[in-house]
Design a binder for these strands. Sequence first.
DNA 1: CCTCCGATAATTACTCCGACATATTACAGG
DNA 2: CCTGTAATATGTCGGAGTAATTATCGGAGG
Lengths: 254, 254
Amino acid sequence: MTRSAPVSDNEDIAAIDGARGVRGPGRRLHGAIAHKLGMAILSGQYQPGDTLSGEVAFAEELDVSRSAYREAIQVLTAKGLVESRPKAGTRVLPRTRWNLLDPDVLAWAFAGEPDIQFVRDLFELRAIVEPAAARLAAQRRNKDDIKVMKDALAAMRRHTLATDAGRAADRDFHNAILKATGNDALIVLTASIGAAVNWTTQYKQRARALPRNPIPDHVRVFDAIAAGDPQAASDAMSALVQLALEDTASAMAG
Amino acid sequence: MTRSAPVSDNEDIAAIDGARGVRGPGRRLHGAIAHKLGMAILSGQYQPGDTLSGEVAFAEELDVSRSAYREAIQVLTAKGLVESRPKAGTRVLPRTRWNLLDPDVLAWAFAGEPDIQFVRDLFELRAIVEPAAARLAAQRRNKDDIKVMKDALAAMRRHTLATDAGRAADRDFHNAILKATGNDALIVLTASIGAAVNWTTQYKQRARALPRNPIPDHVRVFDAIAAGDPQAASDAMSALVQLALEDTASAMAG
DNA sequence: CCTCCGATAATTACTCCGACATATTACAGG
DNA sequence: CCTGTAATATGTCGGAGTAATTATCGGAGG
């Protein structure tokens, strides 16, 4: 039981808790391990090129069976974070191989202190994709899409972005736009980005009271889409993303 | 009520071969299983909501151990294709939960007859992202980026898109543009899309001889980026994607 | 008699264990 | 420098036991 083993590299990982500590209901053990290791990699605790200690050793450190550990590794492998080879061990892959747009990977990236440069990259991508999505939505939206958007907007007004319900309404609004485009690839992509961006919203809140009322921006986007004006929708969404970027930037800088 | 009889749905999967048939070196068993099941799901053989037969049964059908089968399932779970719960079994998730931009998922989607609508969606996304990427590349490229692009262009000219080397050069060209943007999120995204789009290139080849010389389009993009003209780069790339779409559409229609 | 709710039971995935097989690297010998 | 051999870590296997969720059944209340 006494693990007086001299392993030093992974000690800190296991030290946090038994690895089964953060295991809520519906959360499997291997999922918790993957979560922990994923965050450790994304946070830079393990860097590309580093090789993890062997299966048996690491599994024992985490106090889990080898099966559970292996299944967790398969998850990380599926997301491009690590690669395992016989005799060579399990190594962290270079960043370019990581599926940075995977929802879980994004969540892990934003679990700790997110890399500022990566946040900028994400906003840049959002600034490219979302206006185009709004343009398509203005061309293709139907009555039902408009109704969902209107309801979400009303909910945003009722609660604010300071509440969970308000942020949920914000997500609903953007999701409705995506659904209106009818483009599955666009939906999957922007849903991930949106989720990631919403993590930053909490940052904004934490820094200080919301510096701006986001409702008018959203209303302009809605009006343009409802009116079926692609150019106006694109412009309005472009402005919205730009303002969100500025807010986030100032919050992170402060 | 109880399905005491062996589920016949999965029979065909195992029937193709022992599931270990397509297992080259460097390709683990669970990877092969994930590959096979992933293609089965993406091809619609298993539809959202369907529930796979139990671990023991399915693993025995595939003639593999439960460990290997489970690890494969973890991979699919990590990519959002399925979800396993005790007592409920393993079910295929709705399409909206799939990580359609995951490189493996894309590969599976294009392994069989790709869904035409999805190809259109992908091209639409590409038409949004790639011109924007070209615009950024024109603003941020350095000497080295230009050199790589020029070399790739020369290689494309030497070999044609009919050869593997030529297609590799095409990928290099586009990758160089992405790298020049310096945006990691953009790189990951478009690398996936580009790979998927290249599968369609083989379709074009299969249908008939390449109907158009793609070099001039690429040259225009290169010149604009090298000259540092964002608008021209965006326009040229936009035209390139548009032409590629038309070629692919006509090839798939014929 | 019907509806709703709670305790119970059955089924399924989840976890653990120990052994063996395989692939890859590293080293020694030619 | 090349080749063959040995060491080692991952890969695969089969079984046993645990935990969790769903479905069923029974009783209380309408």
